[in-house]
Amino acid sequence: MIKILLKQLTILILSFTGITIIFFSLAQLVPGDPVILHYGNLTPGTEQYENAYQELGLDESLVRQYLIFIKDVLQGDLGRSTVTNHSVLEEFFTFFPATIELSLFAILIALVFGVGAGVLAAVNKNTWIDNLVISSSLIGYSMPIFWWGMLLILLFSLNLGLTPVAGRISFVFDIEPVTGFMLIDTLLAYPKYEFAAFYDALLHLILPSVVLATVPLAVIARMTRSAMIEVLSADYILTAKAKGVSNFKIIWVHALRNALIPLVTVLGLQSSVLLTGAILTETIFAWPGVGKWMVEAIFRRDYPSIQGGVLLIAVFVILINATVDLLYAAINPRMRRPE
């Protein structure tokens, strides 16, 4: 276990170094005065400008500049937004909880329904249930989610009026952002609105998270189905049947436990898919998360925000992948050495 941990740590450090090098190089390609790109509108010639110039090490070699960049990054200094003049790191973390809340909810939906559908399809292989799961997962997998989101808004929000069109919560509620997670914050503000605010937040969350869950759900269902089919034909399933283990236990304990192992890897890959989807979903639903923030930053040519945001997201994905690898080792006994 320690060995795996060490290996993951090495990969983490290497990936981080790689990412920062790439981003540093990309920063060289960005057109414009690097001082202005980093610190917003400073006039050349002023003392402030000269200080910033010094700070970035622009009069020194590229390697020095990179080291300064790394030092800044490690200290959490990702520059300032050229539009709002706020620290990029701070701004990122004000938007980040919204994205996490949305993504977690989406992955929860994807897992519950994806695994369920996959198992159901595998158990009823070659029946109409199986065919239904296969075809709907294929459609889900092929879905352009930005259109899917619009379609659901058209149906549920505009035509049926069941769900709100956009945002995280209605304007009537004044919720103080304590954790940044709306579901928790509305509960923390309980005495003020009782559960009304919480329900409202939940109602806002449903449609975006269904949209975001669509592709991962389809992938998980397909993956679970094929893993389960393979596992169910294994000898140990026969052994369990011969022992008299109930069908329910064979499927949901013996087989699923083994089928989960490849699923964990897929889940790791889905974190990246999920964040890609979050950019689109947040744009459609005006969800104030990092995805929407990044797209807006591009239109405003707010390079420090783009650069810092992507760097943070990449680090986040790498961290998730490392966690998934650890999880994989933890749930797969075959990764353990013979004692």
């Binding site: 294994a234 052994t239 022992k243 008299g244 013996h254 083994n258 797969n332």
Partner: peptide, 21 residues
């Protein structure tokens, strides 16, 4: 049948669930 008969297979390694002790 489970109470009166048992079976063992060719490959002992794959006949046991790899995830359980």
């Amino acid at each position: 049948v489970a109470q009166n008969a048992s079976i063992i297979f060719q490959e002992p390694q794959t006949s046991m669930n790899p995830c359980f002790t």
